[in-house]
């Protein structure tokens, strides 16, 4: 069980900079699926890196499972507990084959070889790259590479997985694969922290955190968050089509609140006996 806790965190990369993260506090419990939205440069990636101890706060505290990221002795533990998948599939594939790449984290952690083989087998099976173990990265699609990266993190048996725009460079098929994998990890009780620009993806999560200028300006359940799509439209986000339609319906008084499941919404439309 690993709770993430940020308390009054301030952060800047260099002394000359303004605060990149300012007075940020948030608690994320084990098993939650949190989307982090926000405009470019709002500090989302920085927050992610603060959580897995790639960065440490200038002031304030970040703890994972009660251990502070400031504690030198806990860094490796925290990085293993909170795994991270990055945006560019090609920039995080370290080894020559999928199998070697999944092994990379395990080798770093000093896992014995027998155990390593078991974990590679189970992690690769879980994300569906078990038939690609000996493939080289240049023979894989973007989605396959990202799933291999997920397997590499999963093999370390993390409690938390952070996805920093992990679907941004993928084609629709690759996105679907990665989202399906995330869903499955969530069902297994892994905390998912998903930085994204895609509202369709955020709809899958339980909780939405919206960042601006290094601050959290919204933190609510996904159902609540999407009840006020004006918030997103004002910030130039593109609403999914079925929400756009609902926005018109709500604005014209045909519907009282937003339904976030498209099928459910369509069903409700078909069964409603309003004047439409």
């Amino acid at each position: 069980m690993s709770t993430i806790e940020c308390k009054n965190v301030f952060f800047k990369y260099t002394d000359e900079q303004d605060w990149i993260i300012q007075d940020l506090s948030i608690t994320i419990k084990q098993g939650e699926w949190v989307s982090i939205l926000g405009t470019n440069g709002s500090g989302k990636s920085t927050l992610a890196r603060l959580i897995n101890a790639l960065l440490t706060p200038t002031s304030g505290a970040v703890t994972v499972a009660g251990k502070s990221t400031d504690d030198e002795g806990e860094i490796w533990n925290i990085r293993q507990k909170a795994g991270m998948v990055f945006q560019n599939p090609d920039h995080q594939f370290v080894a020559a084959t999928v199998r070697d790449d999944i092994a990379f984290g395990l080798e770093n952690a000093g896992v014995a070889r027998d155990e390593m083989l078991k974990r590679i087998a189970s992690a690769s099976e879980r994300v569906g790259v078990d038939d690609l173990l000996f493939a080289e990265p240049h023979r894989l699609s973007g989605g396959q590479k990202q799933r291999a990266a997920i397997a590499g993190v999963l093999a370390l048996q993390p409690d938390i997985m952070i996805f920093d725009e992990a679907t941004a460079m993928l084609d629709p098929k690759g996105r679907k694969e990665v989202m399906a994998t995330m869903k499955q990890l969530h069902e297994r009780g892994i905390t998912i922290l998903m930085i994204t620009h895609e509202l369709e993806e955020a709809l899958e999560s339980d909780r939405v955190v919206f960042m601006e200028h290094g601050k959290i300006i919204n933190d609510s359940k996904a159902e609540e968050f999407f009840q006020k799509p004006e918030f997103l439209v004002e910030r130039d986000f593109h609403l999914p089509y079925f929400l756009q339609v609902q926005k018109h319906l709500v604005e014209n008084g045909f519907q009282t609140n937003y339904l976030l499941d498209e099928d459910e919404w369509v069903k409700s439309l078909c069964t409603s006996n309003s004047r439409m």
Binding site: R49, Q80, G105, N108, L156
Partner: peptide, 8 residues
């Protein structure tokens, strides 16, 4: 960064 994140 990715290598660091994986505990290298």
């Amino acid at each position: 960064t990715a290598m660091d994140a994986r505990g290298y």
